[in-house]
Simulated assay, not measured.
Amino acid sequence: MTTSSVLDQRLTLNNGYPMPRLGLGVWKTSNTDAAHSVSQAIQHGYRMIDTAKQYGNEPGVGAGIQDGLLKAGLNRKDLFVTTKVLNGDQGYDSTLRAFEASLKQLRLHYVDLYLIHWPVDGKFIDTWRALEELYRNGQVHAIGISNFDSERLTELLDKTAITPMINQMEFNPLNQEKDLRQVMQLAGIQLEAWSPLGGGAALSNPTITKLATKYQRSAAQIILRWDYQHGIITIPKSTHVERIVANSQINDFTLSDEDVAAIDALDQGKRGLWYDDFAWHNPTNPKALTGDVQAWDDTAKFLQK
């Protein structure tokens, strides 16, 4: 078993582009905290950062990227950056405009992965065609989707030319999306897990805590190692440097087949969040038209002059 850092490892997407196996997520993180955690993550070996316009922290993430690359002595090409189309920006022309705006906020000339954040009914096909255009033009290196169930994924595959490289889903021991994963596997689509630690419910699950004791690891490390052994890309969120570092220290132990199966058995098919819970997945709802961007008091000081 190799003990090299998981942060050095990549999975090859269906278009041949390599994607890191573990990165940093910044959902529900202010611009100030995002700038700090992103910079620290890069300095501690992370090479993938995941954000979205909806999070309201693209300016902070952009500042953190610049600071982290400078302090780590790296170049832009060393980093894999993901952002996402806001619901209120969906549609062909509006998606292209939104992409340019995100580039400016992030202080970048391209992103590695651009995702449709949620499948807004009646709009996500035109939105995907805009992503295809960005991909063909070389403005993004990979394109994908997020929070697409089997029905909407199948519709997308039937009506568009390019197969998504990624579907980023809520995925953790209590919500394993087994049926959807079968559809994705047949289509050659890589699963990327958001909320991979499942919050308190998964971290405090007796099976997880028992395995943490057995392997002398944290509950988070047990879950992230389980993800790794299933070949799932993960983006755990933390604003604490010690946890950011600890989350990457999962490549010097291996869960036994029996213990992997024990975690597999925890699946409740229970989503903490899903678009049916949000009125704004429906384009006739005002929130779908205006978007739902998190507002932070510190945004202005990170905006590009």
Rank of each mutant, 00 (worst) to 15 (best):
T163R: 13
W27E: 07
T234Q: 07
D33E: 08
N137L: 11
T82K: 03
T154V: 14
G269H: 09
K237C: 01
N285L: 04
K104E: 08
V6K: 09
N172F: 15
A72W: 07
H240C: 03
Y135M: 02
S195G: 12
V6W: 12
I222R: 12
Y215W: 08
T160F: 14
A261V: 00
Q185L: 01
A187E: 12
T51A: 05
G231I: 00
S204W: 06
S256A: 00
V140N: 00
G25P: 11
T209K: 11
G272A: 06
A101H: 11
Q66P: 12
N167F: 07
V26Q: 04
G272P: 15
V183A: 13
F253T: 00
D126W: 13
N14D: 06
I222D: 08
Q268E: 15
G16L: 04
R271E: 13
F124D: 14
L273I: 12
I189C: 07
G122S: 15
I49E: 02
S248M: 09
A98E: 01
L113M: 02
M48H: 08
N247F: 03
I232R: 11
T160D: 15
D179P: 11
I263H: 07
K305N: 10
N247A: 04
K77R: 05
K77D: 12
T254N: 15
Y17G: 07
S94W: 13
H44S: 05
H141R: 01
Q168F: 10
I263F: 13
A142V: 01
F253V: 03
S30H: 08
L24S: 01
N285P: 03
A101N: 06
G68C: 15
T284H: 05
N147V: 05
V293N: 04
R129F: 11
N205T: 07
G272E: 15
K104I: 10
P18Y: 05
G73T: 06
A34H: 04
G200F: 14
S256H: 02
V111F: 02
K71I: 01
E258F: 00
G88H: 08
F80T: 01
D277H: 13
V120W: 04
L180D: 05
G25D: 03
R243T: 04
I65V: 08
G60H: 12
V38M: 02
I233A: 04
A142L: 02
N205W: 09
D267Q: 11
T3M: 10
P286M: 08
V183T: 13
D267F: 04
P206K: 14
D50E: 03
P18R: 09
Q9L: 09
A72C: 07
I233H: 13
S37P: 03
T284Q: 14
R136E: 05
I232N: 13
M48V: 07
N175P: 09
I42F: 14
T207F: 05
L131R: 02
I235A: 03
G25F: 03
P119G: 01
Q139L: 10
V260F: 04
I116S: 07
Y55I: 01
